[in-house]
Design a protein around this nucleic acid. Structure first.
Lengths: 117, 117
DNA sequence: GGCTTAATTAAGAGTAAGCTTAAATAGTGC
DNA sequence: GCACTATTTAAGCTTACTCTTAATTAAGCC
């Protein structure tokens, strides 16, 4: 008998479906490298708390985030290992977003200089 | 002025949404390394032709597949360059599917041997 | 032009996704 | 136990997705 696989390989089809939603990607980005409470996460978005809670549940059930309970709080954090090759997809998307922001800021700065505000 | 980017980088958020659908992933797999006609593709699935045509349109509009017209036919093929890091996600999924099939076949073979059919 | 084949577009129906508000759960401290 | 805070579950609504059938476009051939 084969030894059981100990590190569950990511279920990419499920992960793909979960991450096809931009709100869930934003949530994942928020808790990418630091744990945050449900309320903290929910407060960052312009939708109701239950809406965020439902997205967190999806992320959790798909294994993409981990939950830890401390008192009445629930702390969530990204489970990068479960992303497999999707990790690169996300980081590349976010990097590009940063690039866009940076270029926009530079355009802004140049415009201001030119008009001597 | 910066030189324009000549190779359009993939729009990963769009691609993610398009590929979150399993039928579209199957279509992409079919035309991964060979061109196929719309009818050929449609015939491979148990849904109506228009349904497949609509999925092809989505795949095309997102840049994930290319279309070439020959007479009254339309030949489609995967545009791997547009996938960026998603290419690895897909190939890894498909590889795992193959692995599952293989293991299932082996189990089947063992079962048959044991029961002496 | 008229006929045939290949494929798409249009319109409509059923289902699923994501949000909202209201109610419920669970932990902490008095 | 009661009140308080943090968060989720439940129920309903709206919108978006995917499919269906019917009609349309476009190319090739007689």
């Amino acid at each position: 008998m084969q030894p059981t696989t100990h590190i569950a390989p990511p279920n990419l089809d499920v992960a793909l479906a979960v991450l096809s939603n931009s709100r869930r990607r934003e949530i994942l980005q928020m808790i990418w490298s630091e744990e945050r409470s449900a309320g903290d996460i929910a407060g960052a978005f312009d939708v109701s708390w239950p809406a965020t809670s439902q997205n967190l549940r999806l992320l959790k059930s798909s294994g993409l985030v981990s939950e830890r309970r401390v008192g009445t709080r629930r702390l969530y954090t990204a489970n990068r290992a479960a992303l497999g090759p999707l990790e690169l997809v996300l980081t590349q998307m976010w990097q590009r977003d940063l690039g866009r922001l940076k270029r926009a800021a530079e355009r802004e700065a140049r415009g201001r200089r030119r008009t001597r505000v």
